[in-house]
Amino acid sequence: MHPAPSVIIFSTISGLGFGLMLFLGLGLPDVSGWVAATFATVALGLATIGLLASTFHLGNPKNAIYAFSQWQTSWLSREGIMAVLTLAVFFIYAALWAFMDNRIPMLGYLASAMAMVTVFTTSMIYAQLKTVPRWNTAVTPLLFLLYASAGGALLSNQMTVALVLLGLIIAFQAMAWLQGDTALERSGSSIESATGLGDLGKVRLLEKPHSGENYLLKEMVYVVGRKHAAKLRVLALVLVALLPALLILLTDVNHVIVAIIMLSHIIGLFAQRWLFFAQAEHVVGLYYDAR
């Protein structure tokens, strides 16, 4: 799939925001007043920027309002609704906490839970797609949740939790990549099944329907070099998890180190998310013999 910057930004940044909410909702770190206000603003800000970014991806944003209507079937609709509700609940929680100095734990837990549900709905937009076998697995939501909460842990300075989450990321991400590499083969779809011509022998594309570009090719058929991707995977894991984990373990985490950790994590996250899209092969590519 085409790794559209707006979608990468949306899913990473809003993930961080909701991840931070998870911890703030749990009352971590234990702060108050303007410090709490700052933390809350960061969480709200990240989530909102992320959500706004997602609208850049829309061809026709003026109809975006209808996106709240189809919660019964559509994960994207659910995500929209959950995001807004979460923002609202968290906002009330945070306002009471920061300005009234009245942190209501039950409200916080609710916000935390909702933040995670929001991240889950985001992940299901991708995980539900049978057409993208690499995404169509339970590991997808798991990873989204891990990334969001790890980022939240780092942002909220919950370094021990963060260490655990980063470790899980390394394990599950590696697994997801390895499984993902064979997902299309295992899905049962092939150029033969796509064309129904398997009985005639080995099928290959002779000519694309149009020599010109088209939406499908731009959007669904994005081909990354294998070597290039392998290197990027290593780099992504190092930056997103390994380096932050090492810094937590080996250094005395001060503000500068936190900044480095966050920078590393976010760059790693972008790389991971870029790979998430760029390496996802849509079955329509079979019609173009392009993978």
Partner: peptide
């Protein structure tokens, strides 16, 4: 089209392009 916001998700969901 009066409701479509152009998110592209339906195209992602269609196996046939």
């Amino acid at each position: 089209e009066d409701k479509c916001m152009g998110c592209g998700l339906c195209a992602w969901a269609c196996p046939y392009g």
